[in-house]
């Protein structure tokens, strides 16, 4: 925290006639990217390997944590509350300082890139909250997703609408007026608009009803089957493991169990300690 924020941060921020705190950013957009290195032979499509680090100058949250996704597969990160699931995903996305480890995507070492440049390098990231532009229409949300593209985006947009027919009907409506599940669909659609090489979802089903959740999982499977690898963090471990080609159980920021979804579901320890019997 800076001097200014320490002195004034708690004052006057309730007064809506002078300050506007809605939509304020937290990501440091000024951090510059370092060079892109070469990947390693035999890497999975995306791998965050032996990641150790935390937010800012704070204590480490991740300890030698490794997450990877293969082409065309779904990988899920599950674990108890506070296990560092989201943190692991943010680490892969470049939102925290890694003291050790590296992130490699599609044969390139992207550890030194900032989040913006990782998007350009092919990562599609859907944050858990605040993942849409609420006052903009669904269509504008998708357009903004494709902001960095210079080519014709109409085909991609049609693909997204085919994938999510429910939001296609509401393309002229403000995204903030949609239901929770539809907003998540817009959020995923926005990320797909960059034509990413990997889709990363941070708890896409948080706060939606079970029916909507099933629907969302269906859509995610459809995305993966179309050839786009998906990495996601999930609270609903059981459902997530059912659709996962690969699952990572994290405990206190470290890999506890790794395997296919089915294997882990059958693992007694995982079931006992984590899936509740």
């Amino acid at each position: 925290m800076t001097d200014q924020n320490a002195t004034f941060g708690n004052r006057g921020n309730r007064d809506a006639s002078v300050v506007n705190t809605k939509g304020m950013g937290t990501i440091d957009g000024t951090r510059r990217s370092g060079p892109v290195g070469a990947g390693r032979a035999g890497d999975p499509f995306l791998i965050g390997e032996s990641m150790t680090g935390g937010y800012g100058k704070g204590a480490d949250i991740l300890h030698d944590c490794t997450i990877s996704v293969e082409q065309g597969q779904i990988a899920v990160i599950v674990g108890p509350n506070g296990a560092g699931k989201s943190t692991a995903m943010k680490a892969i996305f470049g939102m925290l300082n890694l003291r050790q480890g590296s992130v490699r995507l599609n044969g390139q070492d992207i550890t030194a890139l900032n989040p913006q440049d990782r998007v350009k390098a092919g990562m599609g990231f859907v944050p858990q909250v605040n993942n849409i532009f609420p006052s903009m229409t669904v269509e504008e949300n998708l357009e903004m997703g494709a902001y960095i593209r210079r080519d014709d985006i109409r085909a991609t947009m049609e693909q997204v609408y085919d994938l999510f027919p429910a939001v296609a009907e509401k393309r002229r409506q403000a995204a903030g007026e949609l239901s929770g599940g539809q907003r998540q669909q817009v959020a995923v659609g926005r990320a797909l608009m960059t034509q990413p090489q990997v889709l990363m979802l941070d708890e896409p089903t948080a706060g939606v009803s079970p029916i909507v959740m099933d629907e969302l999982f269906d859509r995610i499977i459809a995305i993966a089957r179309s050839g786009l690898p998906v990495l996601m963090v999930e609270q609903n471990a059981r459902q997530a493991m059912m659709i996962a080609d690969k699952a990572y159980v994290l405990v206190q920021g470290a890999n506890a169990h790794t395997g296919t979804g089915k294997e882990l579901m059958q693992n007694d320890e995982v079931r006992r300690t984590f899936l509740g019997g």
């Binding site: 950013g25 913006q116 998007v119 605040n130 993942n131 849409i132 532009f133």
Partner: peptide, 9 residues
């Protein structure tokens, strides 16, 4: 949404 705008490039 500043963050999302940044991430959208």
């Amino acid at each position: 949404n500043e963050d999302l705008a940044l991430l959208s490039g």
